[in-house]
Amino acid sequence: MKLRFRLILFIALLFWAAGIFFECIALPFNPLIIGYPFVYNTFSHVCHQDPDKLINLTCGSTLVCARCTGIYLGLLFNSTINIFVVLKIKTSLKLLALCTVPMALDVLFVVINIYPYSKAVAFTTGLLFGSILFLYLYDGLNNLIVEIQNR
């Protein structure tokens, strides 16, 4: 994928990730607060936003839960690396399963009360899942661009 497409992908993910920290971003840019309900509502489509599961920072809390924050930051993290070094990790179902299982197990263990919800564990497992998800997304977009260009 050409650098410009990788940059577009990075900017889109950066913009999305910035929305998660809207409360902190709105602090120095006060008028932004008028858009708070709209941004809050936007993220309500992609996360349950349970107040007990949000990450609390000194400037405010995230607009999505710890797990979703991990997923989106995982996507952004790999996208950032991908600007400088094109990731050539071959995607496979085993790799996807390997990175999804910890998150699925964490959800399951919390639901059946084996251990209580931990933001750190949720964030870490989400980050792992998000990182691998980026590879699939990148491959998918890459193939889509090739298909469109070959038309």
Partner: peptide, 11 residues
């Protein structure tokens, strides 16, 4: 849809 198509193709 993009990620899903990738997963199905790999399967």
């Amino acid at each position: 849809g993009l990620v899903g198509a990738q997963v199905i193709n790999q399967r």
